[in-house]
Computed example of a mutant assay.
Amino acid sequence: MIILGIDPGIAILGYGIVEYNGNSFKTLDYGAILTDAKDATALRLKKIYDELEEILCLYKPDAVAIEELFFNKNAKTAIVVGQARGVAILAAANKDIDIFEYTPLQVKQGVVGYGRAEKKQIQMMVKTFLNLKAIPKPDDVADALAVAICHAHTGRMGNIFKL
């Protein structure tokens, strides 16, 4: 199963593509889609959509796992990040790919086994599970890979989390 994990963002959208067979992972690709704050929001969203569409066409994932938003302070930021998240979901939906969403708590539980795990713990587990030489940077990329790992570990329980 090929899984595309996404950590949504407007300035930095992290992505990670893993192949999961049995109990083993193979890292296919990971990185970040970066947009310029000086550009209009519509152009930034288009760039995210276009680059995700290329990734989807190249890797043809069986599932897209995306992190839910968690904001408690800045509503304006939450709205713009929500738009980027919506564009990511639309790109996958247009390719008829199953989409699953996970809360930050579920990602932590799916990767570390503890819902209150520290960011460093998650990053170390991502590095370990994927047999990487270093923790992927920026943090958004490691987070996206964590979402993909979470789906591999928990998404097999059926379509409980499916959008």
Rank of each mutant, 00 (worst) to 15 (best):
G9E: 04
G9W: 02
I10Y: 07
I10V: 06
I10R: 04
A11P: 10
A11C: 01
A11M: 13
A11V: 13
L13W: 02
G14Y: 08
Y15W: 13
Y15E: 10
G16F: 08
G16C: 04
I17S: 12
I17H: 04
V18Q: 07
V18N: 03
V18D: 00
E19H: 11
E19T: 03
E19Y: 00
E19F: 04
N21M: 11
N21E: 15
N21F: 04
G22Y: 04
N23L: 13
N23E: 15
S24M: 05
F25I: 05
F25A: 05
K26Y: 08
T27V: 11
L28T: 10
L28D: 05
L28I: 07
D29K: 15
D29V: 07
Y30E: 12
Y30S: 11
G31V: 07
G31W: 03
G31S: 07
A32L: 09
I33R: 03
I33M: 05
L34C: 10
L34V: 13
D36T: 13
A37L: 13
K38H: 05
K38N: 10
K38Y: 02
D39L: 08
D39W: 13
D39Y: 07
D39A: 02
D39Q: 12
A40L: 14
A40R: 14
T41P: 05
T41A: 09
T41N: 09
T41F: 04
